[in-house]
Write a protein that binds this DNA or RNA. Structure first.
Length: 584
RNA sequence: GGGCUUGUGGUGUAGAGGCCUAACAUGCCUCCCUGUCACGGAGGAGAUCGCCGGUUCGAAUCCGGUCAAGCCCGCCA
């Protein structure tokens, strides 16, 4: 007699085996009882006959989700009794001995049901939810992805180093989770928003290739593609790298392989394209474009600068642009659907949503009367529009138009179901501007990460137009989701001082704020670069989920609560006192 | 912080001023059943329709507020 998993029972015909698992369902025929026993490998039918005496009596009392062990002989079923729908449908276990290892109350959510269950209930009873085959598969998918990541990095001589979870509050970026220090009342640790500083210090510490699948913590509002509180990154960093392209070419085969070999999906591009940030913004209205569909933004300013439509000409006169996207077969949209899209456009900052449809080879609409015939022809030609297409315009400052049309592009793609779930489009967004114009405060500010290396180093910082400086920084985008962010780091103290000096911060400020890292850089920091992949988000897209909580065992809900464990919780006064924390 | 959507037996849904003493499916309980596989059959229990207030002769249904959830904006690498 040996212990066997359900799926392995198929190979045990004629043998006596023991299986253990949960009661998935019970079919009691009065004189004959069938039990489907479930483990993580699937379902196996147990057959209990009245001749088994005590065992039969025990089986009559079984209910869903009881935990049982059954011992008996595996027999092949007669041909007409085989169930082709399940893997073990050709056999059954004739039970001689049955042990109830634990009972179960009637479960609040049905494990064996196909019904979609309210997420709130699923999270409250996550341990039941996790018993469902789909969730079991998810957990195993995740483990398999981790395994591949470890193997890939190990093969390339990266070593895994764990970095502190009790770390420091960081000045940039998201809101911190703070941990009061008992030994230093009034002082706090912070949970790391990324292992960024530690991994750079590892480079200084002579570790040339580091990686870690690291938990990171951010106290920001969640979204469907953004977990609350904590998530995981495949975090890597390598020394003696001065060009981000080296990191990109090293890492992209891993991701491409995960797409084809792990997720069994098609890569849209044989060679993952590099798209400069500004081109992405201009062409797709987004720094994380979904490239599975077209609908590129086309600049029509040159054609329309003298047209009769004041909305357009005024925008151009004030230094703005007129751009448009072509929605294939978009004239099938109803008036109210158009109104819905118009609402969306307005929410993104547009004044309205002018549009034309194409009939008999030329654009037309209620606003067509403002345009000369050759202007309409020009629009049609530049948009490469065919009969039945919808042309949607945006006119304003360039940034506003890009934002509006970029958002509409996504909305139209959703509506017309242009996102092929079996295809993965990867791209790298490169050349992020180092500085950006802050419209609110009317001054220049850091575009993204002040610690990445300006392209061209110290010399490049001397240019007149600081907005023309680029950072050697890059994001990887998968089907419209940012799944990786990285950069060549600024390892040179002089460059770091100058980068801040341009914004008016002096040496003393930099030293006070970033002294720890700056000190290290004074003692022979090698040039280095790296990146971090969002593991959860990548897995979500690879397995075709549209909510990131579906690929996490125990996610928090939208208001940051764990409904199962009831966290966060209140704390005893005595405990607060010990930590030197005053109650509000 | 703001916007949109949703809230009805344990679970998933229907009902959209009087057909509601709230329907259906599933689950649960009792009984019957020796080849089912989401077994089947008979019977039964289970819901103050998220909460508070208002309109009305009459509210699950309309209105106001409130709470909760999901999505989005803000925020966030």
């Amino acid at each position: 007699m040996e212990r066997t998993l359900n799926k392995d029972a198929v190979a045990c015909i004629g043998k006596t085996i023991t299986v253990k698992g949960w009661v998935n369902s019970r079919r009691d025929h009065g004189g004959l009882i069938f039990i489907d026993i479930r483990d993580h490998t699937g379902i196996l039918q147990l057959t209990i006959q009245p001749e088994s005496g005590e065992t039969f009596k025990l089986a009559e009392g079984l209910r869903d989700e009881f935990v049982i062990a059954a011992t008996g002989e595996v027999k092949e079923r007669a041909d007409d009794l085989k169930n082709k729908n399940i893997e073990t449908g050709g056999i059954e276990l004739f039970v001689k001995e049955l042990i109830i290892l634990n009972k179960s109350e009637t479960p609040p959510i049905q494990v064996n049901s196909q019904q979609t269950i309210n997420e709130e209930s699923r999270l409250k009873y996550r341990y039941l939810d996790l018993r469902r085959p789909k969730m079991q598969q998810m957990l195993r998918h995740r483990a398999e992805m981790y395994r591949r990541m470890h193997a890939y990095m190990d093969e390339r001589d990266f070593i895994e180093v764990t970095t502190p979870i009790l770390a420091n509050s960081s000045p940039e970026g998201a809101r911190d989770f703070l941990i009061p220090s008992r030994m230093h009342p009034g002082k706090f640790y912070a949970l790391p928003q990324a292992p960024q500083q530690f991994k750079q210090l590892l480079m200084v510490g002579g570790v040339p290739r580091y990686y870690q699948i690291a938990p990171v913590f951010r106290d920001e509002d969640p979204r469907a593609d953004r977990l609350y509180g904590e998530f995981y990154q495949l975090d890597i960093e390598m020394s003696f790298v001065e060009d981000g392209e080296e990191v990109r070419t090293l890492m992209e085969p891993l991701i491409e392989n995960l797409v084809t070999d792990f997720a069994h999906k098609k890569l849209l591009f044989e060679k993952t394209p590099r798209i400069p940030f500004e081109e992405a913004m201009d062409t797709y209205g987004s720094d994380k474009p979904d490239l599975r569909y077209g609908m590129k933004l086309v600049d029509l300013s040159a054609s329309l600068k003298d047209c009769g439509f004041g909305v357009f000409t005024n925008a151009i006169k004030e230094g703005g642009v007129v751009k448009a996207i072509r929605v294939e077969n978009g004239d099938s949209l109803s008036r109210s659907q158009i109104d819905n899209f118009t609402e969306k456009a307005k929410r993104e900052g547009a004044g309205g949503m002018p549009y034309m449809t194409v009939e008999n080879g030329v654009a037309t609409s209620s606003i067509a009367k403002f345009f000369k015939e050759d202007e309409l022809k020009d629009i049609t030609a530049k948009m490469e529009a065919k009969d039945g297409d919808l042309i949607v315009f945006g006119s304003d400052k360039r940034a506003v138009v890009n934002k509006v049309l970029g958002a509409l592009r996504i909305q139209f793609a959703n509506h017309f179901e242009l996102r092929d779930p079996n295809v993965i489009a990867l791209c790298w967004i490169v050349d992020f501007p180092f500085y950006e114009w802050d419209e609110k405060n009317k001054k220049i500010d850091f575009g993204h990460n002040p610690f990445s290396m300006p392209k061209g180093g110290l010399d490049a910082l001397n240019v007149e137009d600081k907005l023309s400086i680029y950072a050697d920084q890059y994001d990887m985008v998968m089907n419209g989701y940012e799944i990786c962010s990285g950069g060549v780091r600024n390892h040179n103290p002089d460059v770091l001082y100058e980068v801040f000096n341009i914004l008016g911060f002096d040496k003393a400020y930099v030293e006070e704020k970033f002294g720890g890292m700056l000190n290290a850089f004074k003692f022979g920091a090698p040039p280095h670069a790296g990146c971090a992949f969002g593991v959860d988000r990548m897995l979500m897209e690879l397995v075709g989920e549209d909510n990131i909580r579906e690929v996490v065992a125990f996610p928090k809900n939208g208001s940051g609560m764990d409904l199962m464990m009831n966290s966060p919780t209140s704390i005893e006064d005595a405990q607060l006192k010990e930590l030197g924390v005053k109650k509000i």
